[in-house]
Design a protein around this nucleic acid. Structure first.
Lengths: 339, 339
DNA sequence: ATACGGGATGTTAACGATACAAATCGGGGA
DNA sequence: TCCCCGATTTGTATCGTTAACATCCCGTAT
């Protein structure tokens, strides 16, 4: 098999210099209309495919945006990545995605792995990192955006909200709907700071409002439908009288809901159920799930826009605010309020 | 800000040659135990981060695996990517993901975009491509794997199944469960060959078995919960007597199911509903959804294993079969059979 | 003692594009 | 007619790493 052609080969074939070919492949540089057309035509004929690896090295620009998320499945992060992707791809950037599996050590490995690729910006989920990960991020010399959290001491930029406050508002809603004895269903806190914050917010609000409460942990995140079902079964088996269940995610809430239905427990009349995240299923289930819309997609879009602006201005960071707050919205539906 | 250190700087600091540093960062090359330890220590101290862009260029290896999928949201492909990712990442490969949005022209653009990054292998969803896309894939000189389909004339390797046959089996199941008048709910075929094949399989089986049927299209894919709800509403409004609804995906089936429940139509007694894809929701809903498990995760894993093997052997393709068939499994549940 | 082998290290020249600076070419104004 | 200007094109060095080959050192077989 013959070696694939490179720019020099095109140049020879067309009868121009290497540099002219190079510029013909870029948008804005000055090349004669004729020349460019000819070059592109011959390149296509010869089956030339531009080699970014060389370009990346020489220009010191990769067009990569590195993104770390805990998990793609059973989580809102997929939406965030989608929003981010849509925004950055029109700017000619390519997302490099990595999964931390809710583990900060894994995150550290991942961040180092990704930084080797010389991304031009880094978007991470959450604000808790190992010391080394922090050092790596700070030393990388690229914009860093932390999402889904409001860290106490951010590394760089932030696009997020307070998970604790959001869950607190949910508890307030449950109280105002008449609930006095609550249960929180969530995953292990280990590594999932968002889940942990929601639990903390739940506890804080419940105590502030003088409500009776109990916490249930179902194991490592992500907390999906199955876990919600199991936890609900446990709660109902225990036989303790309760009024409302707040779940760390809509998936768990949906699992809890179906378990109730399976056992003939009427929702919301006998028991209210609340979720988190505004998944599609919250709207579709019967009854609909009351949930907290964290605007996952918007978080991604905002992060993307911020990042594109930062990269365009070339470090002229004055234009952008350091901390974007995306206020979650309470969506009340049939699982906590009779219709 | 001082420029980030490179290998040469480490070399100087440690007092060895550049090459020794380079070797120290790789696994298998011969470097003295002492020397390596010292190099790694000083590198860490100096905050050195390996630069793959240079390595990629010189070694002509990127460690990238390019993957194109129609959509990450509301689809099985997320699982396939997850499986693929898990397998290839232990081999030190990084997935480069792109979304075609169920459009072959978009796919062509994407494939070219991705090939510029010089991936070492390419995994695409489906077997239909533009001529140019095909040419690009064939000329890239890397292993190409088509998934989720069995193309008539594959570009390279295949990991998939016959969507038509799978849906045919579903129709057989519905018939044997007593259904005679069927409805198929799917998206526009435009670009979604998998959906189109399922519809074809539905039609073929229905005609073969002498069943009455009707086809409903709900617009461009992905076909999610909302679309299922809407389509079901349309069917019920039409008032025509039917026995079973087969959906192109579990999400649509779930939407259809909840719409029935909203209207008091008993499933499966008055109407059977079948989905496709074995999403979590199929198991969790009440009643459970009868579905066709296409083994999305397995498809990804198999593709990953194949690809890792191909890359290790360095083109010694004799070891691997060209076409891996992953037989879907029918999962019968409460939405088509009374329990 | 000499030759030999193999592990550890060093030297040089790429990989394929782009930054930067310099050269070429017409054409309009003095 | 000559010079200068902008548009277009060219030449050369270089991005940071690794392949390929050369060298050195030391223990062991002969």
């Amino acid at each position: 098999m013959p070696k694939p052609p490179k720019m020099a080969d095109i140049a020879k074939a067309v009868g121009v210099s290497l540099m002219t070919v190079s510029r013909a492949f870029r948008q804005d540089t000055s090349v004669g209309e004729e020349t460019r057309k000819k070059i592109l035509m011959i390149a296509e004929e010869m089956g030339y495919v531009f080699d970014s690896t060389a370009s990346n090295l020489r220009s010191q620009r990769t067009g990569f945006v590195a993104v770390t998320i805990p998990s793609l499945n059973n989580s809102n992060f997929a939406d965030t990545v989608r929003g981010l992707n849509e925004v950055v791809q029109v700017a000619g950037l390519q997302v490099l995605l990595g999964y931390t599996n809710y583990d900060v050590d894994e995150e550290e490995r991942l961040i180092e792995q990704l930084l080797r690729r010389r991304p031009e910006a880094m978007v991470v989920t959450g604000g808790r990192h190992t010391d080394r990960a922090r050092r790596l991020l700070e030393g990388a010399g690229i914009p860093v955006i932390e999402t889904w959290d409001i860290p106490q001491s951010p590394v760089g930029y932030t696009v997020g909200f307070s998970n604790a406050d959001a869950m607190g508002r949910m508890v307030e809603h449950l109280q105002s709907a008449g609930a006095r004895r609550l249960v929180f269903i969530g995953g292990d806190d280990e590594g999932d700071t968002r889940g942990a914050d929601r639990r903390k917010g739940f506890v804080a609000a419940a105590e502030r409002l003088g409500l009776d409460y109990q916490l249930i942990s179902v194991g490592p995140p992500p907390v999906a439908i199955r876990e919600g079902t199991r936890a609900m079964a446990g709660v109902l088996d225990a036989g303790k009288q309760i009024d409302a269940v707040a779940c760390v995610s809509d998936l768990a809430a949906f699992g809890a809901l179906t378990e109730c239905q399976r056992r003939g427990v009427s929702v919301p009349d006998e028991l209210m159920i609340a979720g988190f995240g505004a998944y599609d299923i919250a709207e579709a289930s019967l009854p609909g799930l009351t949930t907290m819309d964290a605007h996952s997609l918007t978080i991604g879009c905002k992060a993307g826009e911020l990042l594109v602006a930062l990269l365009r201005d070339g470090g002229d960071t004055a234009t952008a605010q350091t901390m974007a707050h995306i206020e979650p919205a309470l969506r009340i539906s049939g699982s906590t309020v009779s219709r």
